[in-house]
């Protein structure tokens, strides 16, 4: 008996018998130059009804604290920002899952992470879950995500981000708070993912 694998691959080859492979691909259109990358990024993030606070490098800890408004918070081990009273997720990068459970995380109000890249055109933040961002669950279960993005991390559009990102890592692209348009195509912000996204943009 032939395996499903062999049979499917044989059927694919048979279906394409005599079909020429595609030639070289046309390059996707390049990105228009943007004068004020950071300004566009802020505008587009706010368009999703996320909160954006711009601050200087020495104001980050205070800005984050203000964003947390006294609620409990979890932070990844390599955040590098002082968040008093926060729980450090122990499992980050440790290769096992004896850290906080999903239920533990569900009892925490907020998470503070860094980011890998920000995309101005689409108002998107991409996490590559390095040590300053933590494993995927911590930036998902708490209801408030405070995300610290440096101005020099902002690129113009999607192709710049794709070029920068490492596909060997798990990646999460975030554009605003969780949302749905499933009821009469009217957009509602706040479903399963964090209902509030607060971006702290460091200039």
């Amino acid at each position: 008996m032939t395996s499903a694998r062999d049979e499917i691959l044989a059927a694919v080859r048979a279906a394409l018998d005599g079909v020429e492979p595609a030639g070289p691909l046309p390059p996707p259109p390049t990105v228009r130059p943007v004068d004020d990358l950071v300004g566009l990024f802020v505008e587009r993030v706010e368009d999703y009804r996320a909160v954006v606070t711009r601050c200087a490098a020495d104001e980050v800890a205070a800005t984050v604290a203000a964003a947390l408004a006294g609620g409990s918070a979890v932070v990844p081990s390599g955040l590098g920002i002082e968040v008093p009273g926060s729980v450090v997720d122990p499992s980050t990068g440790s290769g096992h899952r004896d850290g906080l459970s999903a239920t533990d995380l569900d009892g925490i109000d907020a998470v503070v992470t860094a980011a890998r890249v920000g995309i101005a055109e689409t108002g998107t933040i991409v996490l590559d879950h390095a040590e300053d961002q933590g494993r995927r669950a911590i930036s998902l279960v708490p209801d408030l995500h405070v995300c610290v993005v440096r101005a020099d991390q902002v690129v113009a559009d999607v192709p710049d981000a794709v070029a920068l990102l490492d596909p060997a890592r798990a990646l999460t692209w975030i554009s605003g708070p969780s949302a749905t348009s499933d009821i009469e195509l009217d957009r509602v912000e706040g479903v399963h993912g964090p209902r509030t996204l607060h971006v702290v943009l460091v200039e």
Binding site: G123, H129, V158, P159, A170, S178
Partner: peptide, 28 residues
């Protein structure tokens, strides 16, 4: 990724896109 969200939900980008390859040790 530039075509899909604008065509689909009419957004510049959808709220979440997840990318992963096989098993990520310690994560997921």
């Amino acid at each position: 990724l530039r075509l899909l969200p604008r065509s689909s939900t009419g957004e510049r980008m959808n709220p979440y896109t997840s990318m992963w390859s096989g098993v990520t040790p310690g994560d997921g």
